[in-house]
Amino acid sequence: MASTDIGIDLGTASILVYVKGKGVVLNEPSVVAYDRDTDKIVEIGEEARLMLGRTPGNIVAIRPLRHGVISDYTTTEKMLKYFIRKAVGRNLFGRRPCISVCVPSGVTEVEKRAVETATYNAGARDVTIIEEPVAAAIGAGIDIMRPCGNLIVDIGGGTTDIAVISLGGTVVSSSIKVAGDDFDDAIIRFMKKRFNLLIGDRTAEEIKINIGTCYKRPENISMDVRGRNMVSGLPKTVTVASDDIEEALRETTGQIVEAIKGVLERTPPELAADISDRGVVLTGGGALLHGLEELIEEKTGITTMTAEDPMSAVAIGTGKYVEYFNGNV
């Protein structure tokens, strides 16, 4: 095949690019920094993420994707072009690649078309749009072509996609706009309320990764958090424990559990029996939150496990989708 086949996980928090034969070759934050005065893009990806909350007045660092859909079309197109070039090298326009892109299962036809057009404009020869849970299942190594039910929960940055998959298709699905970014927002709100401390998105993410949990840890670990005191306006450091973060995330993680229960309630009985045997599979960056497996297991009574590489599962599944279906049909 002359073209380079690419799978793109177009995420709210990060973009992963899978190249056939090479695996995931790029994993960068979906952040773009541009100069407001000249309207020129300054940085894209990791360099732009480091600028979040730290830019002078004329430079703005933004995320052009919100809740898994395009909120800033032009910037998304430029960002896609940049990442595709970075992944496949400079000879992109000599041979245009076939690109598969995944989108949350709840997006509208208009939103799908926006992704498709942006991908074509970024240099694709052919574009296939795939639903996130199907890609996640393939990437997690599940044989979705068999006639038995698999429950996939893909927790990204902007959306959580829950789907029951059987015979290569989605039987029941739900997409909610509660995910990793909402965990960060919940931590920011909690720090304001409990400690009168103002912190940024990056600090909230550090707390989530280091001591975040949604299920009581065996030992209560803590870390020092720096921010701005809302009363005095001066820098301040406080010590936060994992039990505090469990409390902060209770409502947000509760919404994800309720959405999983909602999908299970709508699942046909035969497939529900399969899921009860096979368990729930978690993918996406949000699946790395400590205690999520235990929480879902406790609330649903179904064994829950996280995919081997939850962060890359969707990108791998997106890249393998076309050959997977061609090989199985």
Score class of each variant (00 low, 15 high):
residue 150 N to C: 03
residue 265 E to Q: 13
residue 196 N to K: 15
residue 94 G to P: 00
residue 115 V to R: 06
residue 259 A to D: 10
residue 327 G to I: 00
residue 167 L to D: 13
residue 140 A to T: 04
residue 241 A to W: 03
residue 213 T to W: 05
residue 249 L to A: 02
residue 277 D to Q: 13
residue 80 L to G: 06
residue 161 D to L: 02
residue 4 T to S: 13
residue 326 N to G: 10
residue 222 S to E: 10
residue 210 N to C: 06
residue 19 V to K: 14
residue 154 D to Y: 01
residue 188 I to N: 03
residue 38 T to P: 07
residue 6 I to W: 08
residue 137 A to G: 07
residue 107 V to L: 00
residue 47 E to Q: 13
residue 270 E to S: 09
residue 205 E to Y: 04
residue 231 V to C: 01
residue 208 K to D: 05
residue 66 R to T: 06
residue 92 L to T: 11
residue 249 L to D: 03
residue 203 T to A: 04
residue 319 G to L: 01
residue 35 D to Q: 03
residue 307 A to S: 15
residue 113 R to C: 00
residue 89 G to Y: 05
residue 12 T to A: 07
residue 288 L to A: 10
residue 109 E to L: 05
residue 318 T to H: 10
residue 235 P to H: 11
residue 159 T to V: 05
residue 272 A to G: 02
residue 121 N to Q: 13
residue 237 T to Q: 06
residue 314 V to F: 04
residue 163 A to T: 10
residue 219 E to R: 11
residue 255 Q to V: 06
residue 284 G to L: 06
residue 109 E to N: 12
residue 232 S to Q: 06
residue 54 R to P: 00
residue 11 G to W: 09
residue 107 V to C: 01
residue 329 V to Y: 12
residue 129 I to Y: 04
residue 304 T to H: 04
residue 91 N to D: 14
residue 275 I to G: 09
residue 182 D to V: 00
residue 5 D to R: 14
residue 73 Y to G: 07
residue 33 A to R: 12
residue 204 A to H: 01
residue 88 V to P: 08
residue 186 A to L: 14
residue 173 S to C: 11
residue 288 L to N: 15
residue 158 G to S: 03
residue 254 G to K: 07
residue 329 V to G: 14
residue 118 A to Y: 08
residue 270 E to C: 00
residue 92 L to Y: 04
residue 178 V to T: 15
residue 53 G to F: 02
residue 16 L to T: 00
residue 162 I to R: 06
residue 44 I to C: 11
residue 208 K to I: 03
residue 71 S to N: 15
residue 115 V to C: 04
residue 215 Y to G: 03
residue 284 G to E: 08
residue 290 H to R: 07
residue 217 R to E: 14
residue 32 V to N: 04
residue 13 A to D: 11
residue 144 I to P: 09
residue 40 K to T: 11
residue 110 V to E: 14
residue 151 L to G: 06
residue 207 I to P: 02
residue 143 D to W: 10
residue 43 E to C: 09
residue 46 E to A: 15
residue 277 D to E: 15
residue 271 L to C: 08
residue 275 I to K: 05
residue 245 I to E: 01
residue 253 T to E: 08
residue 99 I to G: 11
residue 97 P to A: 13
residue 316 I to C: 09
residue 128 T to R: 12
residue 237 T to K: 09
residue 315 A to N: 05
residue 261 K to L: 14
residue 116 E to P: 00
residue 195 F to D: 05
residue 197 L to M: 03
residue 59 I to A: 12
residue 176 I to H: 10
residue 156 G to Y: 03
residue 166 S to L: 01
residue 184 D to L: 07
residue 318 T to V: 13
residue 240 V to Q: 00
residue 57 G to C: 00
residue 146 R to W: 02
residue 141 G to I: 03
residue 92 L to Q: 07
residue 303 T to H: 15
residue 63 R to G: 10
residue 284 G to S: 11
residue 40 K to M: 08
residue 304 T to W: 04
residue 97 P to C: 11
residue 66 R to K: 14
residue 225 V to F: 00
residue 17 V to E: 05
